[in-house]
Amino acid sequence: MLSLTCPNCGVTAEETEFAPGGEAHLKRMGPGADDAAFRDYLFQRKNPRGVHFERWRHAFGCGKWFHAARCTQTLEVFGTYTAQTSSVPDDIVAAIKARRPDWELDQ
């Protein structure tokens, strides 16, 4: 069972306090988007073995959303960061590269 740190309230808590929200940094497709882009927005999700960016909500705590950079294979957590961003912050990228030198950000 994972242990995550909520960057909003600073609590490090076990997974049962959190609710998962799937892949982070999706770009919303609204009216005007073509069918393919809209389909991808609704259904197409990355499923990497390795570094992944996820949305989590501190459901039983402060109620706030945040993002986590995590390895889906080893469950290593590289960092958690604000949900009010559309891209991965530089310090998170650096933290991942420190542990996974061959990894490149793919956005």
Partner: peptide, 13 residues
């Protein structure tokens, strides 16, 4: 309520 907060926090902040 969670739905509204999700949109406010993660899309329309």
């Amino acid at each position: 309520h969670v739905w509204m907060e999700e949109w406010l926090q993660t899309e329309w902040w």
